[in-house]
Design a protein around this nucleic acid. Sequence first.
DNA 1: CAGGTATACTTGTGACCGCAAACAACTCTA
DNA 2: TAGAGTTGTTTGCGGTCACAAGTATACCTG
Lengths: 161, 161
Amino acid sequence: MSRQVLRAQAYPEVTAFVRLLRVNATIRRELEARLMRSHGLTAKDYEALVALARADNGYLRRVDLAEAVLLTPSGITRLLDGLEQLGLVEKGHCPTDARVTYAVITDAGRSTAVAAEDEHDRLLREQIGGSLAPAELETLIDLLGRLPGAHTSACALDVEP
Amino acid sequence: MSRQVLRAQAYPEVTAFVRLLRVNATIRRELEARLMRSHGLTAKDYEALVALARADNGYLRRVDLAEAVLLTPSGITRLLDGLEQLGLVEKGHCPTDARVTYAVITDAGRSTAVAAEDEHDRLLREQIGGSLAPAELETLIDLLGRLPGAHTSACALDVEP
DNA sequence: CAGGTATACTTGTGACCGCAAACAACTCTA
DNA sequence: TAGAGTTGTTTGCGGTCACAAGTATACCTG
């Protein structure tokens, strides 16, 4: 009986994706470790906090925040429970719709968001900027931008021009 | 009191990383959905199965498998429980060291690995190959390869030349 | 070869998250 | 305006995972 065997040689598309996975995992791991150590925030906490800090007046409906950080509504409820206990976020009521509860960033939350983002950006500039020349970086941005999902709006880190 | 405000304009390194995150999330989500629908496998299941299929004689110590798919030993125990119930993997004993239990891929597991990898690669070729010309793809591979973590060995999808 | 250390694996425990169900409040339609 | 459908939020449940503790076996040193 002849046994099926996996291909030894990968398609270039697969090579690219594997590298993408690894770079993503490596940088993300380091980022999460630093955010946790410096501010006690998970990656989702950070994304939510930055999304609120960027929002007009510092508040967002929970549904909209859920979409921004790629969580389900139930995930947002529990995430915000944690941020409230840290004093970084408060609940707010909507005067025109009693169903909605706003997530409102506090002054402490805003300070934390600013500090965390500084650290976040500094790491990225070290890790990425240290490996690629400016022109190469632009090329990378262009190529990634043409891949599926590169422009989905659902991301708190959405700070692209 | 003047309120701190987040930067409006992102560093190019941040733009690149955000796109990398999004592309990763988009493709990964689609990949996982297909693997689950077609074969009832999670991404980790798939990675473990492929790692075993590529291993000499189709078996690996659980510790080594853990490293290959980026799981802790406890995660591997539970993942393999599932694969055993599906009949894709069996336990094997090491004649020279009674502590080790091998994870051994079955014929059914090998067939599933081959079929799943076909589907996996087809999707990647559609999603990535469909967006980039061959030369651009090579450029992308090169640029990603110079970013941190691109060549970590700990990845079951490791099929690079 | 006895005792200590290292290694392989398993088993609680707790965190995070999605899904589905429940509930409240809004909106639309007849 | 009554009832039906929609939307925003929370809660119960189950799955996956890491961490730490526990068990068993191997190796190493005196």
